[in-house]
Deep mutational scan, measured.
Amino acid sequence: DRIFMTRTEALEFLLKAHQTAVDKIGHPSHKQTPADHAAIEALDRLLLDVRARRVDQFQINASAAQIIVTD
């Protein structure tokens, strides 16, 4: 599946995904793992790359739809 978004929409989408990941590892019942921190770092890099126009398409994980940034 493909989803087309403007750059602004894609950045909002990534910010929400980032916040969800941060909230998940901050929850008291969740045991933090290196994979959790790696996922947040990957989202940080992706946010910067989309914002800087170095990336025009991405996929958060293998089961997610491919996001295509349109400007």
Score class of each variant (00 low, 15 high):
Ile67Glu: 00
Asp56Arg: 09
Phe58Met: 01
Lys31Arg: 11
Asp36Tyr: 06
Leu43Cys: 02
Asp36His: 05
Ile60Ala: 03
Thr20Tyr: 09
Asp44Gln: 15
Leu11Glu: 07
Glu9Gln: 12
Thr70Ala: 06
Lys16Ser: 09
Ala39Gln: 13
Met5Leu: 09
Ala62Arg: 07
Arg53Tyr: 07
Ala65Phe: 07
Arg2Phe: 12
Lys16His: 11
Ile60Arg: 01
Phe13Ala: 05
Asp56Tyr: 11
Ile67Asn: 01
Ile3Asn: 03
Asp71Ser: 06
Met5Asp: 00
Asp44Thr: 15
Arg2Pro: 13
Leu46Asp: 00
Thr20Gly: 08
Phe4Asn: 04
Gln19Glu: 07
Ser29Gln: 10
Asp56Glu: 06
Ala42Pro: 01
Asp1Lys: 01
Ala64Phe: 11
Leu14Ser: 00
Leu48Thr: 14
Gln32Glu: 13
Ile3Thr: 04
Val50Ile: 05
Thr6Met: 02
Asp44Gly: 14
Ala38Cys: 05
Ser63His: 12
Gly26Gln: 15
Gly26Tyr: 13
Gln66Val: 15
Phe13Met: 10
Val22Leu: 14
Met5Gln: 01
Ala65Asp: 06
Ile60Lys: 01
Ala38Tyr: 10
Ser29Arg: 08
Asp1Trp: 02
Asp1Asn: 01
Asp36Cys: 04
Asp56Leu: 08
Asp71Val: 09
His37Glu: 11
Leu43Arg: 00
Ala64Lys: 08
His37Thr: 14
Gln59Asp: 03
Pro28Ser: 13
Val69Arg: 01
Arg2Gln: 13
Leu48Val: 14
Ser29Met: 09
Ile68Thr: 06
Asp71Thr: 07
Glu41Pro: 02
Ile25Trp: 05
Arg51Asn: 06
Ala62Thr: 11
Arg53Phe: 05
Ala65Arg: 06
Leu15Trp: 12
Leu15Phe: 09
Ser63Glu: 13
Arg54Leu: 12
Gln59Cys: 04
Arg2Lys: 15
Pro34Thr: 10
His27Ile: 08
Val69Ile: 15
Glu12Leu: 08
Phe13Trp: 11
Leu11Asp: 02
Thr70His: 10
Glu41Cys: 05
Val69Ser: 01
Ile68Gln: 05
Val50Leu: 05
Asp23Met: 04
Phe13Pro: 00
Phe58Gln: 00
Glu12Pro: 00
Arg53Asp: 06
Ser63Asn: 13
Ala65Leu: 12
Val50Asp: 00
Leu46Gly: 00
Glu9Trp: 01
Leu48Gly: 13
Asp71His: 15
Leu15Ser: 13
Leu11Gln: 02
Asp36Leu: 15
Glu9Ser: 04
Arg51Ile: 15
Gln66Trp: 15
Ala17Thr: 06
Arg51Pro: 03
Arg51Lys: 13
Lys31Ala: 08
Thr8Cys: 07
Pro28Gln: 09
Pro28His: 08
Ser29Asp: 14
Met5His: 01
Gln19Phe: 05
Ala21Phe: 12
Ala65Ser: 12
Phe4Arg: 06
Ala21Tyr: 11
Ala39Trp: 14
Val50Lys: 00
Ala10Thr: 02
Ala17Leu: 14
His37Leu: 15
Ala64Asp: 13
Arg53Gln: 10
Ala38Ser: 09
Leu11Met: 09
Ile25Tyr: 06
Ala39Cys: 06
Asp71Tyr: 04
Gln66Pro: 06
Val50Arg: 00
Met5Pro: 00
Ile67Met: 03
Thr33Tyr: 07
Arg54Ala: 06
Asp36Arg: 03
Ile67His: 02
